[in-house]
Nucleic acid binder design. Structure first.
Lengths: 213, 213
DNA sequence: CAAAACATACCAACCAGTCGGTATGTTAAA
DNA sequence: TTTAACATACCGACTGGTTGGTATGTTTTG
């Protein structure tokens, strides 16, 4: 199992290398604009290997989303923002952590599953579902801390921990889009700063605060 | 000028119909996955007409972004949210207006230029620039009201009117992505509600409020 | 040796873009 | 006012290259 390629050994097995290539190329070009040949070339693998591991291009998209979930999941699980005593501090430290990641090329810090969802949500429901699982699964890891922070401060706004957790991801995704449009990572950092300010204000407000309408 | 097509008359000239088709199809399939033939078929136009009006597919993308700017610009310019005496009310009414638009199919209310940017920012800088002009141009229409609201309430946070205006667009774009992932417009509405809450809190806070770090 | 993991060769469909031609004005000189 | 010259708008067959996918052969591993 996990045999190495003739073309380009010493870089792991074909499947992993194809998924790595997909992560990088799809992030900068999108899913539809990325051809199977291009992926094979980048991974140093032939088409035979590609269709041995993936039934079709859509299946690679699904696998890439899952691979993204696993790798980023591991990154966030071991990140230092969990090491705060206060739950609100953990949430704010998460936002800071996301802020610190934003640097260098856009392809390096933007979100694969956000990019793919936007593009293929209609044509490839299977990929859409895998992306949704990745996004909302990651958001769910924030929920306990948000919930605990609400309880600790007696916050009872017209919003839920799940909704705020999802919103953090929405702000990040939107910040990435604007950064791509402006071709400037600083725009993304601006968005994260607004997010941190929002969370801070939410938990500064009176226990019943943050309501409107 | 503006001659009608043989294939499908009584629907305006070929150029406009191609741009209408691009708006609808690209929103649901993305730019790369949309073929010229598909656009021609949907517009009731032949390839000859397509390449008469657009030098290449990229040029259509640029024109589609500009067309989007013009049509949505007219929509927002005549929208009723401008009819409030207080500038902050105008800003909040804008957010309400954006909220009300979210209904029905995702392809009907999501943003063409946000979708395109995400996909082609690297491969087609010309389209990226046209999308950026659309997004930040629209954001700029909010700036005077935000600025006036800040002045009226003596708000001096560590953020600018331009940055908050941009952030409104980031939240909307991100909300659209999550709605696509979840295949549920309600997710987008949640995001807009958080945005309104944020703006409300920003202007409720003490004059020097909303600072952190 | 059996089966998984690759490589090679190939195909039909589709792709963006081209090109020669037609239909319908518009302009302006005779 | 006729008409020649020119411009714009559009048509549709065609092309060279690319696409996702397949069929089959070879190599490695357990």
């Amino acid at each position: 199992m996990a045999r190495k390629t003739n073309i380009d050994p010493d870089r792991g097995d074909a499947r992993t290398r194809l998924l790595d290539a997909a992560r990088d190329i799809v992030r900068s070009q999108g899913f539809a604009a990325t051809s199977v040949d291009q992926l094979c070339k980048a991974a140093g693998v032939t088409k035979g290997a590609f269709f041995h591991h993936f039934a079709n291009k859509e299946a690679l998209g699904v696998a890439a989303a899952q691979y993204w979930s696993e790798t980023t999941g591991a990154l966030f699980a071991t990140a230092p923002y969990h090491d705060h005593a206060d739950p609100l501090d953990r949430v704010l430290a998460y936002v800071d952590f996301r802020r610190d990641i934003i640097a260098g090329d856009l392809e390096a810090f933007t979100c694969l599953v956000g990019t793919m969802t936007q593009e293929v949500y209609h044509a490839h429901p299977a990929i859409r579902e895998a992306c949704a699982a990745s996004i909302f699964g990651h958001a769910a890891t924030l929920e306990p801390d948000i919930e605990a922070a609400m309880k600790a401060r007696g916050i009872k706004g017209d919003w839920t921990a799940a909704s705020l957790a999802a919103h953090t991801q929405a702000v990040l995704q939107g910040a990435f889009i604007l950064a791509k449009a402006a071709d400037d990572p600083a725009v993304a950092i601006d968005g994260v700063d607004h997010l941190k300010r929002y969370i801070t204000l939410l938990f500064q407000a009176s226990p019943m605060g943050g309501q409107h309408d």
